[in-house]
Simulated assay, not measured.
Amino acid sequence: MEQDFTTRPQPVGNSVRRKRLSIGFPSSADAGELRFPITPEGVERLSAMGMQILIESGAGAPIHYSDARYVEAGAMVGKRADTLMADIVVSLGALTVGDLLLLRKGAMLLSLLSQQKLSSEFVKKLLQRHVAFVALERIAYDSGQCPFADILLEVDGRAAMAVASAFLLKSGFGKGILLGGVSGVIPCEVVIIGSNVGARAAAMAAVGMGAQVKMLDNDVYGLRCASLALGPAVATSVLHPNVVDNALRSADVVISTPTSDFSEFAADQLSRAKRGVVFIDLNPLSASVFPTLRQVPLTSAGLLQEPGRGFCFRAVGNAAPRTAAMALSNTIINSFSCLEKLDGALSLIRVDAGVQSAVCTFMGKAVNAEFAQAAGVRPIDMGLLLSCS
């Protein structure tokens, strides 16, 4: 007996395969930034989350990781242009206007605002390409802590003491003295302005080296936290003018960290400091507290031949780029862990209030006052743009 068979269309599955999100990591070495924000271990973790990682060839050299090591971890290593065309681009160093032209329209750029030169052309290119610029150091948790800013400050604080110790010993620059002294010889005196994460990290390192440490800040609660963490080895005081003057006269190392209650050292104050004092500034370049001193990036410090007076070292985190890379890699993994559940990179901005607070440009509009001023436009309320997206 014959049977009639009727063909029916194959049912379409309900599941939709999501596009694999790409994250690009261009090198910043040409901009004088030796820290690189991702390690091979970090690549493995991000790749396991389903993300495609693009690394510029040679980018890991300053932290002593080869291209082959990144490839083994699951990254695609190629030209700079390839990394800049990713969905998300992470760069610690400043990008050029030429770099911005390679960014994918609607991409997300995570970078350090303190490293960028906000020219009108730079900001307008971001707006034209609808790039969402996110300032890494302004990303905040609900508790108010800033994970990227805090870890970078902690590395800077510890590195500052290593740099100071090296330059105190350096022939022709320092006085040829040990930071911690020896039996019968008084140790060096370290003065730290501020009581934040970086200041406490510097103080902890200095105490460990045997130095005498003074911490000055008008934030009494911050000083109390430092005292509880470090004990009586660190003398704390508010920023009274006489206290600051006396501390400068006897200091061998002066380290300034970001604090809202101190503007800058006057020229006459610095002139009373001892010869051979090592000055280190952990503040952004636009907020230096040593305006009369020559600002020297650590990457250029090896060229100095003159005695130490009159210099201020900056970007000391470059002394420990691999430590910074490992710490940043951990922070990036934690911050990006939710991306595998979201629909696209910009969804992170929509669902994370801590990231929203760090956004400077979004949907072709300037939502940050500094960026708006640079572009000559009025800032747009971020909440308004989110409600329309």
Rank of each mutant, 00 (worst) to 15 (best):
H240F: 15
T259A: 15
S263K: 14
R249D: 07
L248T: 07
P258M: 01
D252I: 04
P241C: 08
A251K: 00
A267S: 09
A251R: 00
D261G: 11
N246P: 07
L270I: 02
V243E: 07
N242C: 14
E264Y: 10
N246R: 13
Q269M: 03
D245S: 14
F265W: 00
R272G: 08
A267V: 06
V243A: 12
I255M: 08
D261H: 11
I255V: 13
S260D: 14
V253Y: 02
S271E: 08
H240C: 12
D245Y: 05
F262H: 04
D261V: 11
V254K: 02
E264V: 12
D268V: 10
P241V: 09
H240T: 15
L248S: 05
V244P: 00
D268F: 08
E264G: 01
P241F: 02
I255W: 06
S250R: 12
D252T: 08
F262M: 06
P258H: 08
F265R: 01
A247R: 03
I255Y: 04
V244T: 07
H240Y: 12
V243R: 05
P258A: 05
H240G: 13
S263H: 13
T259I: 14
S271D: 11
T259W: 12
R272H: 12
V254H: 02
A247I: 07
T257G: 05
A247N: 06
S250G: 13
D252Y: 01
D252S: 06
S256Q: 04
A266W: 11
N246T: 12
P258F: 01
V253G: 01
V244Q: 02
V254A: 07
Q269L: 00
P241Q: 09
I255P: 01
T259M: 15
Q269G: 04
F262D: 03
S260V: 15
R272D: 11
P258E: 08
S256L: 08
V253C: 04
T259F: 09
P258W: 03
S271I: 05
L248G: 06
A267D: 09
E264W: 05
